[in-house]
Amino acid sequence: MSKTTHSPHPAGNATPRADSAPPDAALSDPALDAALDRLARAPAPPLPDDLSARLMADALAAMPPAMAPSPWPRVDEGIRWRDRLLDWLAGAPGMAGAAAAGLVGLWIGLAAPGPAEALGLSLQATLWSADGAGADIAGLLADDALLWALNGAAAEAGQ
């Protein structure tokens, strides 16, 4: 516990007897004055532990509620954000699902040209066998709209 080091005269006087001379000036007792000065300058004894605990309990109870610290232990900010995201995504299973969906999307994005081309070649073979004009059609396979139109025409021709 820290010892007080404050001025012994909190009322703000430079000296205890700085104002007008009192009528007891005739009662000159320098020894008594010196003893009173020594007593005034003596440090106050520390607070008893039980009183100190009561004062702290009051201080914490009276602390402004909006600014009072949380009674819960502090957590890392990153962990707090992870928890919030987990809550928003309905927990760990939800987050795993979202992650899987993201990976599938990524795979589709990267792997899309392969299956589309395979699909075009397959359709080309079908058209070739239908009317023998496959060589001319093959160059147009990159255009999906035309591809589907031709596919529809081939189907009608087959009927």
Partner: peptide
């Protein structure tokens, strides 16, 4: 609060 108790309380 603790500092204020220790500083001001004794006097």
């Amino acid at each position: 609060a603790r500092a204020l108790v220790d500083r001001l309380g004794p006097r």
